[in-house]
Computed example of a mutant assay.
Amino acid sequence: MRYKRILSMGLAAAMAAGMLTGCSSSAQENTGNAASGAGDSAAEQVVIQLGYENNPGEAIDLGCNEWARLVEEKSGGTMKIEVFPSSQLGAKVDLIDQMLAGAPVITLADGAFYADRGVPDFGILFGPYLFSDWEECWTLTESDLYADLCSDLEEQGLKILTSNWIYGDRHILSKKPIRSLADLKGMKIRVPSNDIQVEGMQVLGANPTPMALGDVYTALQQGTIDGFEQPITVIYAGKYYEAAKYLTLTEHVKNNTTWICGTDFFNSLTAEQQQILIECGEEAGIYNNEQYFQQEEEALNALKEAGVEVIEIDKDEFREAAQSFYQLDKFTSVWSDGLYDRVKEAMGA
């Protein structure tokens, strides 16, 4: 696929030139850190905690372990990433608060969360049915518009390390079938705790119910929710199909994910350490994406074998309903002028 070629070429070019591009361009601005880090402190091992909601064995988890391996190898053991899957370090919002306080923590997040953290324009990237395919997504992340958004987020205390990881196409797993937009109306669908995904599900007629992913299995069992939305690989790895037997292939969000740390922590690293952290994250992202596409097919087949009914829908009626999201005054009143059109242009649509 084109995105693999682009990312592989981009990574090789960045490593050969010894410089970082896109959202990582500010690493060169911190070259003074290399001098200030010389001496005894430079010899101390930097230990970073990498926390995420996904379970062991998922593509994201495999990618994180690859990231940890690459960092330790390329730093000669002077840097170490400790991985904590399955929300072991807490919910995403808690980790973001920790990194804003200066903790050496990394987690994955998306534009929807960044909209709630001081960069409203970032939220549109997680709007329903924004992207038609992955090519549009990668084109956008390589654009000047995206680089500007990353810079704005950095001013809010959050540093994007890499944006080339696929989290997956998001679909709905539910306890009763969804065959049309009408079937979704009023259903309690779990979404992450951010305004973008809450409103994105609401415009499709559902009753969005924010909660941590770690609470979803029990909520399905107890009937607190009727369903939730995640990529197929996450649905299978978490065994959520044991509590809900209908998978509707809505593909309402093409979810690439980004990895972030606190700006203060990032700036405390030497320029060399920053470069290692980012380049290894990009390389691990390519590995994650390869694992994702393999696991997605395997997971879909396994879900069918486990008795899950996989439902194909007419996406056109869902896309049509989703267009109202981009006219919501709640967002347009805080988005910059002409944002939707500028994003579409930047993604080549």
Score class of each variant (00 low, 15 high):
residue 163 S to D: 12
residue 163 S to M: 10
residue 163 S to E: 13
residue 163 S to V: 11
residue 164 N to G: 11
residue 164 N to E: 11
residue 164 N to L: 10
residue 164 N to T: 11
residue 165 W to F: 12
residue 165 W to A: 14
residue 165 W to L: 14
residue 166 I to P: 01
residue 167 Y to R: 06
residue 167 Y to L: 08
residue 167 Y to N: 07
residue 167 Y to D: 06
residue 168 G to F: 02
residue 168 G to W: 00
residue 169 D to G: 12
residue 169 D to A: 14
residue 169 D to Y: 08
residue 169 D to M: 11
residue 169 D to S: 12
residue 169 D to W: 03
residue 170 R to K: 06
residue 170 R to V: 10
residue 171 H to E: 01
residue 171 H to T: 04
residue 171 H to A: 03
residue 172 I to P: 01
residue 172 I to Q: 05
residue 172 I to M: 03
residue 172 I to H: 04
residue 172 I to C: 06
residue 173 L to H: 04
residue 173 L to I: 04
residue 173 L to Y: 01
residue 174 S to I: 01
residue 174 S to Y: 01
residue 174 S to Q: 01
residue 174 S to T: 08
residue 175 K to G: 02
residue 175 K to A: 07
residue 175 K to H: 05
residue 175 K to R: 15
residue 176 K to L: 10
residue 176 K to G: 11
residue 176 K to V: 08
residue 177 P to S: 02
residue 177 P to F: 01
residue 177 P to W: 03
residue 178 I to S: 06
residue 178 I to G: 04
residue 178 I to W: 06
residue 178 I to N: 07
residue 179 R to Q: 10
residue 180 S to I: 05
residue 180 S to C: 09
residue 180 S to V: 04
residue 180 S to W: 10
residue 181 L to K: 00
residue 181 L to T: 01
residue 181 L to N: 01
residue 181 L to S: 04
residue 182 A to W: 05
residue 182 A to K: 14
residue 182 A to V: 13
residue 183 D to P: 04
residue 183 D to K: 02
residue 184 L to I: 08
residue 184 L to H: 09
residue 184 L to E: 09
residue 185 K to H: 11
residue 185 K to L: 08
residue 185 K to P: 05
residue 186 G to W: 01
residue 187 M to H: 09
residue 187 M to R: 14
residue 187 M to S: 12
residue 188 K to M: 11
residue 188 K to Q: 11
residue 188 K to L: 09
residue 188 K to R: 14
residue 188 K to P: 02
residue 189 I to C: 07
residue 189 I to L: 05
residue 190 R to P: 00
residue 190 R to V: 13
residue 190 R to M: 14
residue 190 R to Q: 15
residue 191 V to M: 12
residue 191 V to Q: 13
residue 191 V to I: 13
residue 191 V to C: 12
residue 192 P to M: 05
residue 192 P to R: 08
residue 192 P to T: 11
residue 192 P to L: 10
residue 193 S to D: 15
residue 193 S to E: 13
residue 194 N to Y: 04
residue 194 N to F: 05
residue 194 N to L: 03
residue 195 D to P: 02
residue 195 D to N: 14
residue 195 D to T: 15
residue 195 D to E: 15
residue 195 D to V: 13
residue 195 D to A: 15
residue 195 D to R: 14
residue 195 D to G: 10
residue 195 D to S: 15
residue 195 D to M: 13
residue 196 I to C: 04
residue 196 I to Q: 07
residue 197 Q to P: 00
residue 197 Q to Y: 08
residue 197 Q to D: 15
residue 197 Q to R: 12
residue 198 V to W: 12
residue 199 E to F: 13
residue 199 E to V: 13
residue 199 E to L: 15
residue 199 E to K: 14
residue 200 G to E: 08
residue 200 G to P: 08
residue 200 G to M: 06
residue 201 M to R: 06
residue 201 M to K: 02
residue 201 M to V: 01
residue 202 Q to T: 11
residue 203 V to S: 05
residue 203 V to A: 01
residue 203 V to N: 07
residue 204 L to N: 07
residue 204 L to E: 11
residue 204 L to R: 07
residue 204 L to Q: 12
residue 204 L to Y: 12
residue 204 L to V: 09
